[in-house]
Design a protein around this nucleic acid. Structure first.
Lengths: 324, 324
DNA sequence: CTGTTAGCGCATTCAG
DNA sequence: CTGAATGCGCTAACAG
């Protein structure tokens, strides 16, 4: 069933049908006939054929590392919600943190001639190491959340992670905490920024930096945290680069009979659902996933409409609950 | 840059280029020339034009209710991983549980002439109420996880939720628990099945059914659970329809100084990441998201290749940790 | 306002 | 093995 079939049965030309489909003015009587035939056959115009002409499938790609991480899921969710309302279709790409995999995805997206790409996370700055890849995507509208891609038509939305952690650390200091440990996860640009916020605050108040590292969020993190606690350096407070790490700290400290929020403070990062499932509820730095994601989507829409856009930084805020 | 440009510059015809692109035999010297030109311009054939001819963009849609729920995120993640390896592109649709929204998505997918659709969750059985919608998607390959869609080319993968809960309840009974409460969330087909598993086990052993309800997973659930605990009926054990509910139970019971796993048992459902972040770690019914999702993807691939497939039911298993 | 025609970029006949 | 011609379903000029 195509536009010819509809035209024939309705007794009009294909261009009249096309005009009907695109809401242009046609004689009411023809309109009725066409409408009738379309309903009769449940006809739906092919987006592929339309796309061949218009050079656009109204398709936007969102690249994330791992949908199972709540931040990415929330970002993908929000962007999808925002864009699909406006008739765009959203392709979510799970790169699994693998560079080759990401590049393969980009090839696939270029073949589809997607209208734009949104990258979630500073990790995608790795693309700047691959001039050939940049060249391929050079003309396509790109928005990068928390990073920057070096192409002609690329723009960025940042969450101010560094200041977020700075303020959280300062909050602890002003509460009188002196031995504040930072638990760092990963070594991406944005995890470094977070850690820098901690360092800046500690330095400003003349305290001592103590940084622990972990490359895992679950089992291995548990061991790393256990070791950290056994080392006994975390007497006062712990600032964590991720809510899940803070959750593990809270859980282990509880088991050791610490009174969280009294004996020792724990602060997470992301203000995710985990802040509500911990006991006590977790104080966390809110890096505004939803606001950031909506901004990415809006900015992309602006670019697609040819509007001028400029990079933006969204401030974090500290959501104080009971763990600090 | 299209196939004509490449052909011209390489001094061959477009059909030769097309053959090159589709790995058909051509003279090595021509192959080299073509290869050279393609590399030079970073040429990528248009999937849209290919799709117009082949009637397929190699696109598969996954419909879920809410990507922020770990089960759906895991399902989407797994399906995407499985299919994108094989060159398919995956569109994830977040319906937000809204029927109109779902139907709008389906329209959009039909326009794109996606190769197949995977529905995650029994909630999508609501489509069976809309003959017009069924009619539109009647010919497209469909796989439904935990439900069935009444179209010609639809198949199902089930997780045996009922038996999963039955066995978990039986496990508690055999441990000597007598006052076992079921905490029910939602009223979809599959949440009813879960609850039925509880009822069956309770009845078989001649115990008393006690069922509590909640329509929320967070704040309101907290209150519902609080009330349930205040009612004092949960003396022995609680079986929950969702891990998040079990998490809240564990957290609140801990605060009341119950020894979870000793004084009272709590079992969750999903075997999600929440089972590892609770304290103590949560015993939970594993409904095998990953296995189920891979099966959905594989089954769809089989259907696309014209193979015969039959519906399948995957058994759940009880993952025993420390809360029961 | 309506219909005719020429592409959009590619795969696929069918001759040569 | 290669190339010229046709069509996939639709939009956009253009002419009527």
């Amino acid at each position: 069933m195509n536009i010819y079939d509809i035209a024939r049965e309705a007794g009009v030309s294909i261009s009249t049908v096309s005009k009907y489909l695109n809401n242009k003015n046609i004689r009411p009587e023809l309109k009725e006939k066409i409408e009738y035939v379309i309903k009769k056959y449940n006809y739906v115009p092919s987006a592929v054929a339309q796309g061949l002409v218009s050079k656009s499938l109204k398709l936007i790609a969102v690249m994330v590392v791992d949908l199972q991480v709540s931040y990415y899921a929330a970002a993908a969710y929000t962007i999808d919600k925002t864009l699909s309302k406006l008739g765009y279709r959203v392709i979510i790409c799970n790169t699994l943190g693998d560079e080759e995999n990401s590049i393969r995805y980009l090839d696939s997206l270029m073949k589809l001639s997607v209208d734009g790409i949104i990258f979630i996370g500073s990790i995608f700055e790795f693309l700047n190491k691959y001039p050939k890849v940049l060249n391929k995507i050079d003309n396509i509208p790109i928005i990068c959340n928390n990073g920057h891609i070096n192409t002609k038509n690329s723009h960025s939305v940042y969450a101010d992670d560094r200041v977020g952690v700075y303020q959280a650390t300062e909050y602890l200091i002003k509460k009188g905490r002196k031995n504040i440990v930072y638990l760092k996860y990963l070594t991406t640009a944005s995890s470094n920024l977070k850690c820098q916020g901690y360092k800046d605050a500690i330095d400003k108040y003349g305290l001592k930096q103590t940084i622990y590292y972990t490359n895992d969020l679950m089992t291995a993190a548990y061991e790393d945290i256990k070791k950290m606690l056994e080392d006994g350096v975390a007497k006062d407070a712990i600032v964590c680069g991720e809510d899940l790490l803070a959750l593990s700290c809270i859980s282990q400290l509880s088991a050791l009979n610490y009174k969280i929020g009294v004996d020792i403070d724990v602060i997470g990062f992301n203000a995710s659902i985990f802040t509500d499932v911990s006991n006590p509820k977790m104080t966390s730095i809110d890096n505004k996933v939803e606001e950031t994601s909506v901004k990415c989507a809006d900015m992309l829409l602006d670019v697609l409409q040819g509007k001028e856009v400029k990079d933006i930084t969204i401030p974090c805020s500290l959501v104080i609950k009971d763990s600090a």
